[in-house]
Write a protein that binds this DNA or RNA. Structure first.
Lengths: 316, 316
DNA sequence: CAGATAGTTTTGTCCAGGACAAAATAGGGG
DNA sequence: CCCCTATTTTGTCCTGGACAAAACTATCTG
C-alpha cells in the first residue's frame, strides 16, 4: 500500500514498474543475476531506486525493444551503454524533414509545453503540405526524432506523452472536418490486445481518409474475436493493424494468422508500424506497409485490383 | 514467458491481471485468505483461472471501486453478490435521458459494433441539443448506463472500450470544428499520474470550449511538476483535474494539496469526475464540480468574480 | 549456400509463505 | 458531532528456488 516516491526522490519497486514498464519480478531477478540495478533499502528492507537507476532502466527497456539482449545491456558499463546508444542513432527510418516545418521548432515547443505554438506549427504544416504531407512529412519524422532525443536524455517521458496527446488531438480534429465521400474500400483499424499505441493507427486513418476511403477505427487493444465480429458487421474490405517495435514478432505472427483464418478471403489484412516485420507478408492475404508514406500507393493498388471498372483515383 | 489463454479458455495469472487490473500478488493472497478464486493448476503447478473466475473478479473489482470492502465481497456467495449488485443499481448520478436520443439505441449500436450507426446517433443528438446538450444529456447518462449494463453482464469489456473510443473521437472532432474565440479564462486540463481515464477531461473541455474558454488539454497522467510548469508557461487561470471513482480519496487530497501549494493563488483549481469527493472543496482555492452540466455555471461564476467589468456571458 | 532441425543458453514469469505498513474501521473522549 | 487513538483489514514486498518459452548456435540436408 505504499505509493510513490518519498520526499528524497527515491522510488519504490512498484513506482519503478509503473515508470519503466518492467515487471517487479523482472527487476528483482535482474538484481539477483546481473547485479543491476542495486537499489538501497529502507528501514524495513524494501528497495529504494534512485532516479538514475530509473533513467538507465528506461534506456535499457527501449534498447530491449529494438532487439538488444538483456545480458548485454545489464552487464554493460555506462560507457558501453553510451556506445550502444550511438550505434542506434539514425537507425529509425531516415525520413528527412525536407524543408517543411523544422522538427527542431516542434521540439522546442514541446520542451516549453507550449500548446498554442505546437498547434500553430501543425497548422502551418497542414497549410503548406496538406494533411498527408503533415502526417508523412512532419509527424512520422517527429516520431523518430523524438524517440532519439528521448534516448539521449534530452526529452522526458511527460514531454513525449504531451506530444502524443497533442498530435492525436490535432489529427482527430483535422479528420473530423473532412467531409467523407464514402468511397470503397471500407477499412477497419485497430491493434491487437497487447498493443497500446494508437498514434500509428490514427496516422494511417488520416492517410486513408484523405484518399476518400471509409475508415472505422476501433481504437487499440481489441480481442481477435471482436475484430472479426466488427469486420463482418461493418462489411469491411480491409482490416488494418498497427504494431509498435516493442511487439514480439512471434505473437504478431500468431495473432495475424489466427485473424486471417477467421476472416473471409475477400477481406484483406494490412499490417503497419515499426513492429510490422517483413515475415508477416508471407501469410497469404496479408500486406505489410513499410512506410506511412506508401499508404496511398497501397490503396491505389487495392483499388486497381478490386475496382477495375473505375479509373485509378488520381494521387494528388 | 507464458502468455495468454491456452486453447481451453483457461487463463494464466498474468492474463487475469491484465484483464481485471488486479495485481498478481493480490490474486494470490486472496486465494490464501478467502479461498477465492481457487484456480486449477497445470502440470507444473501454475494457476489456471476459468472465464467465470475472471468475470466474477471483474465484478468484484468494480464494486471495490464503488467503496465495498474486499472481505465482504470475497466471502460473498454468488447470490449475495447479486444482491449487492442490485443494491448498487441506480446509484450513479440519475441523469435521465430526458427525451433526446434514447440511450437504448446507443447501447444497441454498441452491441453491434456499428460505427456508422453510433456516429449518426451522436450527430443527431448534436443537432437536436447542441454540443453541450450532447455531452450532459447523452454522453454523461450513457456513461452511467453503460457502467450498469456492464455490471449486470450485459456488455463486455471490448464493447465498453469501443464506446469510449468512439465518443472521444466524435467529441474531439466536434471540438476541432469549433473556431475558438480565445476568451478568458485559460484552462489547463489533465489528470494526476495514476489516473488513466481521459474521457471526463474531454467532456469538460467540450463544455468549456462551447462557452468560449481557452482550453489546453495535456492528456492524462501528468506528473505534478509538469502540471505546474505547464500552468506557468501557458499562463493558465484554471487547472482542471479529473478523477474517476476508482481513485483513492487520500491520494487525491494529497495530490491536489501539493499542486495547490506549488501554484500561485491567482490560479484556481477545479476538480471533477466521480472520484472528486466533496472534501476536496475544503482546500482553499479548489472548486469541486459536482455534475458535468454545472460546468457553464461554474465558469460564469468565475467570470463574474474575475472579470467584473464585462457583463456576464449569456449561457448558450 | 539457403533453410530446416536439434541442442544449449538466456531470460521472464511463477510459486510459497512469511512479514509488515498503510488504510479503514471502531472505540472513546472532548 | 467531530477529533484522536486502538484494532482490524488489506495490499504490497520480500527471498530464493524452479521451470518453460524464447533466442541463439551448431549441425545436417537438399
Amino acid at each position: 500500500m505504499k505509493h510513490d516516491a518519498n520526499g528524497s526522490g527515491r522510488m519504490t519497486i512498484s513506482a519503478v514498474e509503473r515508470e519503466t514498464g518492467l515487471p517487479k519480478d523482472t527487476l528483482r531477478v535482474w538484481e539477483r543475476r546481473y547485479g543491476f540495478p542495486q537499489p538501497a533499502r529502507d528501514e524495513s528492507g524494501e528497495r529504494l531506486y534512485t532516479p538514475e537507476d530509473v533513467n538507465r532502466l528506461r534506456l535499457i527497456r527501449r534498447l530491449l525493444d529494438q532487439g538488444w539482449r538483456p545480458g548485454k545491456l545489464l552487464a554493460a558499463s555506462e560507457a558501453e551503454l553510451q556506445r550502444i546508444v550511438e550505434a542506434e542513432r539514425g537507425t529509425g527510418v531516415p525520413v528527412a524533414p525536407d524543408g517543411g516545418v523544422p522538427t527542431d521548432d516542434v521540439l522546442a515547443a514541446i520542451r516549453r509545453h507550449d500548446v498554442p505554438a505546437l498547434r500553430d506549427l501543425f497548422q502551418r504544416s497542414l497549410l503548406e503540405r496538406g494533411l498527408q504531407g503533415l502526417v508523412s512529412g512532419l509527424v512520422a519524422p517527429l516520431n523518430v526524432v523524438i524517440g532519439e532525443a528521448w534516448i539521449r536524455g534530452e526529452l522526458g517521458v511527460p514531454e513525449e506523452h504531451f506530444y502524443t496527446e497533442q498530435v492525436q488531438s490535432f489529427l482527430r480534429g483535422a479528420l473530423a472536418s473532412y467531409t467523407r465521400p464514402a468511397t470503397p474500400p471500407r477499412v477497419l483499424l485497430t491493434t491487437l490486445p497487447e498493443e497500446e499505441h494508437g498514434l500509428g493507427l490514427l496516422m494511417v486513418e488520416v492517410m486513408l481518409a484523405s484518399e476518400g476511403a471509409q475508415c472505422c477505427s476501433l481504437g487499440p487493444r481489441m480481442p481477435l474475436t471482436d475484430i472479426r465480429a466488427s469486420a463482418l458487421t461493418s462489411a469491411a474490405d480491409i482490416v488494418a493493424l498497427s504494431f509498435s517495435a516493442a511487439y514480439p514478432l512471434r505473437q504478431a505472427l500468431a495473432g495475424v494468422r489466427t485473424l486471417r483464418e477467421s476472416l473471409p478471403d475477400t477481406v484483406d489484412i494490412w499490417v503497419g508500424g515499426a513492429g510490422a516485420h517483413e515475415r508477416l507478408a508471407s501469410i497469404p492475404g496479408v500486406s505489410v506497409i513499410g512506410a506511412i508514406r506508401s499508404v496511398p500507393d497501397t490503396l491505389a493498388e487495392w483499388r486497381a485490383a478490386r475496382l477495375p471498372d473505375s479509373p485509378t483515383t488520381p494521387l494528388n
